[in-house]
Amino acid sequence: MFWIGIHPDFRGKGLGKNLYSIGLHRLQYDFDAKRYLGATRAENVPMRKVFEANGCVQESISVISLEYSLFG
């Protein structure tokens, strides 16, 4: 469920939480997913709130993140 977002005019209305919930439901029931690993930048507080509102918990695992800049 990468690259899903809410248009700036509609943010702060709970739509992100609802959209994410629908995605999790579809992963579980339509695709038989057992786990979902979500990721966002640490400073992306709104997305972290969406995760938390949908019952996601931060696990104590190490993840390495690599970024490639297209614009040097």
Score class of each variant (00 low, 15 high):
R41T: 08
C56L: 14
D9F: 01
D30R: 08
H7E: 14
F2A: 09
M1N: 09
K49Q: 13
D32V: 02
I61W: 08
R11A: 03
V50F: 01
P8T: 02
C56P: 00
F31M: 13
Y68M: 15
W3G: 08
S65P: 00
L37I: 10
G5Y: 02
N44Y: 02
K34S: 15
F2K: 13
S65N: 13
I4F: 08
A39R: 13
K34W: 02
V50P: 01
M47Y: 00
A53N: 14
A39T: 05
D9S: 11
H7L: 11
Q28R: 15
H7R: 14
H25N: 15
G72S: 07
H25M: 08
V45T: 09
L27R: 10
I61E: 11
G55L: 07
G16V: 03
R48Y: 03
I22T: 11
P8C: 01
L70T: 00
G72N: 11
Y20E: 05
K49L: 04
R41Q: 15
N44I: 03
F51Q: 06
K34A: 06
L15V: 04
V50L: 04
K49A: 10
G14S: 04
Y68A: 13
E59W: 10
Q58D: 06
K34Q: 14
V63M: 13
K17Y: 01
D32L: 07
E43N: 12
Q28W: 04
Y29V: 12
V57G: 09
I22K: 14
G72D: 08
H25D: 15
L66P: 00
W3Q: 15
I4A: 12
K17S: 15
K13A: 07
Y29A: 08
Y29R: 11
G72E: 09
R26D: 05
Q58T: 05
H7N: 15
P46W: 06
I6G: 01
Q28S: 11
R48A: 05
R48M: 06
L27V: 06
E52S: 13
E52Q: 15
A39L: 09
R11T: 05
F31P: 03
V45W: 01
L66N: 01
L37M: 07
G23V: 02
R48I: 10
K34F: 03
V50S: 01
K17I: 06
G16S: 04
Y20M: 08
M1R: 09
A42G: 00
E59G: 05
L66R: 06
P8A: 04
D30G: 02
C56H: 06
V63C: 12
I22G: 03
L70K: 05
V63F: 11
M1Y: 12
M47S: 09
W3M: 12
V57P: 12
E67L: 13
D30Y: 03
I4E: 04
I6S: 02
R35C: 12
P46N: 06
I4N: 14
S69H: 13
H7W: 08
G14C: 00
I6L: 05
F51I: 01
Q58S: 09
A33H: 10
Y20S: 05
L27G: 11
Y29Q: 14
F71Q: 15
A53G: 09
S21R: 14
L37K: 13
D9G: 02
G14A: 03
L66Y: 13
E52P: 10
G72H: 06
E43Q: 10
P46V: 05
L27H: 11
M1H: 11
